[in-house]
Simulated assay, not measured.
Amino acid sequence: MTATTGTDDGRAGRSSRDSRGGRDDRAELARLLPPATGFALPPGRHEHHRERLMNQIDHDTAADTASASAASAKDRAREGARDLAPARPRLLRPSFLAPATALALAGALVAGYSAQGGGDAPERMESGASASERAGEAQPVALVLNRISDAAAKGEAGPVRDDQFVYVRSQVQNGDLTSGTLVTTPLSEREDWYAQKPGPQKKLGLSREDGETLPINPQLGDTEGTAPGIGRPTYRWLAELPTDPRKLLDHITALTPKPEGQEHAQAVFDEIGGLVGFTVMPPETAAALYKAAALIPGVTEAPNAVDAVGRKGVGIARVDAHYSSRSEWVFDPETLTYLGSRSFLTADTAYGRKGALLSADAVVKRGVVDEAGVRPQD
């Protein structure tokens, strides 16, 4: 579609010091995290892992008194995270990390689905078209995306009522740096229920993975709840987006933050991937998003693309040279419907070899239900 993940007790707004006068690891972790960016990442995926992390931190804090040696170790870990963060690969879907390593790896994590934020629209050329538009129009991939757009325009998704939930079941894999090297977690099933209520909400839905069901809570800093937007793309919000591809690209670009070190065009590509992959939206909006993606410089066709469960299809890809990573969207070769995505390293790094998988997903089912936790009927 991607936030505080604590309960409604206002966790995000707590002081940086705990009740005993010590430093609050949760606040320190939030401070160390880099600006949020997205990668085809459904809203709630990062929230699910972050909630598990925060719960474990709460448990450890209550169980053990921080000793001087532990504090010293944490200080060294924080310093190491600051030193290593710029060189680490961007983990597109961070796995659950144990509290002992969380702070040391904080610099390597990028929060999943991005919050609304500022950003500059593509620079306009004298001809009136942006540089991204001119580059996209010159690429053969535009023909492929136009075909995908035409197929999306014939879809029958929605409408979705404000009192309903969008349901997505997927198979996912995530990158893990806990060991100091990149390890891809086993494939697991995930289910998400996204609330469609208008206005700021503190209960955004439910997420179920590995047999554990957790609430999807407001984004980091949204103490009054998270409003519909690019970080919480409800059907109503998606229906209000412009359907002219050039205007839509400018709009999405303006809402996509510029993450430090990452190409802004890549962040925009990832945002669009999250929207088309893990939401239910009006067909005309989906069609416009694919045509907008064709206007992003560097987007190419990816032959022999496969999703997380090995389904082969038509691929659309972009390489982020700054992060040495490649993102791919996969579409059914016959119907051109979205199947899933994957990302991997494009060069050898200190954390993994070229070709190492950063993340992968496969959408198994999407639907609309009246109650969170209930699966749609087949």
Rank of each mutant, 00 (worst) to 15 (best):
A68K: 08
M1K: 08
A81G: 01
G373K: 15
A308R: 06
V330S: 04
T61W: 05
S114C: 00
T337A: 14
V319D: 12
E371K: 14
L275P: 00
V160E: 01
E334S: 12
T226R: 08
H59K: 04
S19N: 07
A111I: 04
G180N: 07
L339V: 00
V299R: 13
E126R: 06
G373F: 15
G107C: 05
R134Y: 09
R326L: 06
V374P: 03
P159R: 04
L105A: 12
L358C: 07
L103F: 00
V330R: 03
V166N: 01
E209T: 15
E189L: 13
P86A: 06
R342P: 04
L220S: 01
D162S: 13
G340R: 03
P215C: 10
V168C: 13
A362N: 12
D18E: 04
A153R: 06
I216R: 13
T2W: 14
T243G: 03
F278I: 01
D64A: 09
R208Q: 15
V276L: 01
G274Q: 02
L109E: 10
R26L: 14
I57C: 05
I216P: 08
D60K: 01
R26V: 14
L32F: 00
L241S: 06
R20S: 12
D58M: 07
E328D: 12
G175M: 04
T335M: 03
E260S: 11
P376W: 08
V183R: 11
T61K: 05
V160R: 02
D25L: 11
L275V: 02
T337C: 04
G229K: 03
A106G: 14
D24K: 01
E28H: 04
V168G: 11
S130V: 05
E51D: 09
I216G: 06
E126L: 11
D332A: 00
G310L: 06
T2S: 12
D222Y: 01
H264R: 14
I148V: 13
D9L: 15
A129F: 05
L214E: 15
T184K: 09
N174C: 14
T7I: 10
A292P: 15
Q56E: 11
K312S: 12
L241M: 12
G340C: 05
K365A: 13
T243Y: 02
V364F: 04
V299N: 13
L289D: 01
E47K: 07
V183E: 09
E126M: 05
I230R: 07
T213E: 14
T178P: 02
W193E: 13
K365H: 06
G352P: 01
Q164M: 10
S324L: 10
Y113K: 08
A40Q: 02
N217E: 13
P259S: 12
A372M: 13
P94W: 00
T279K: 02
T335D: 10
S149T: 01
R20F: 13
A85H: 09
T5I: 10
F96Q: 11
Q262F: 02
D244Y: 08
